[in-house]
Design a protein around this nucleic acid. Structure first.
Length: 161
DNA sequence: CGTATTTGACCCGCGC
DNA sequence: GCGCGGGTCAAATACG
């Protein structure tokens, strides 16, 4: 878990003054197999646990050991939905224990792009929005402003797989 | 009319 | 086995 100070340049309402990011390196195959490829983000879960309670693993494909790219970060924002240039379709919402705010589940609307993300507001500090990305887009962004894309690139640069 | 959201049902893993 | 918590499906609904 490392901290970054990133300031958005457009000054939009979604602009975080600080951004904390947790990442995970899934280099342990034995771990993957022992869990049927389920939860590959032990470190990230632990870091989120401190803030929000438990985060369950996702059901995975046990046949092939595929890499799961999962990135979680939290921003200070008054809006839940950060426009990162992609289009997301909401497919679920669940209440989380130990949190008065629900968690929303989104999927990338692009065809054959299986990227998912969760958005969850902290119950303690309702200014904090925790966003979890899973997967890598198989297509370019459509939108012009690439603020968040830029941030993601920075994250991936700082945390090479 | 096509697409996105809402929302309860459903599924699954896990602990008791 | 059953209940619980978390994640997803899908039918109904909303919206342009």
């Amino acid at each position: 878990m490392e901290n970054y100070s990133i300031v958005f340049s457009d000054g939009s309402s979604a602009s975080p003054s600080s951004l904390t990011m947790a990442n995970h390196h899934h280099q342990q195959r034995s771990y993957l197999q022992s869990n049927n490829g389920v939860n590959t983000c032990k470190n990230m879960d632990a870091s989120i646990d401190k803030n929000e309670g438990e985060v369950a693993g996702k059901k995975g494909d046990k046949k092939e050991v595929m890499k799961k790219h999962k990135y979680a970060f939290q921003t200070r924002s008054h809006v839940d939905i950060l426009d990162d240039g992609y289009r997301w379709r909401k497919y679920g919402q669940k209440t989380v224990k130990n949190s008065k705010f629900p968690r929303s589940y989104y999927r990338c609307t692009h065809k054959e792009c299986n990227v998912k993300k969760q958005v969850q507001r902290s119950s303690k500090d309702d200014e904090i929005v925790v966003t979890t990305y899973e997967g890598i887009h198989t297509h370019p962004v459509e939108k012009l402003f690439e603020n968040f894309e830029h941030i993601l690139k920075q994250i991936q640069t700082y945390n090479p797989l």
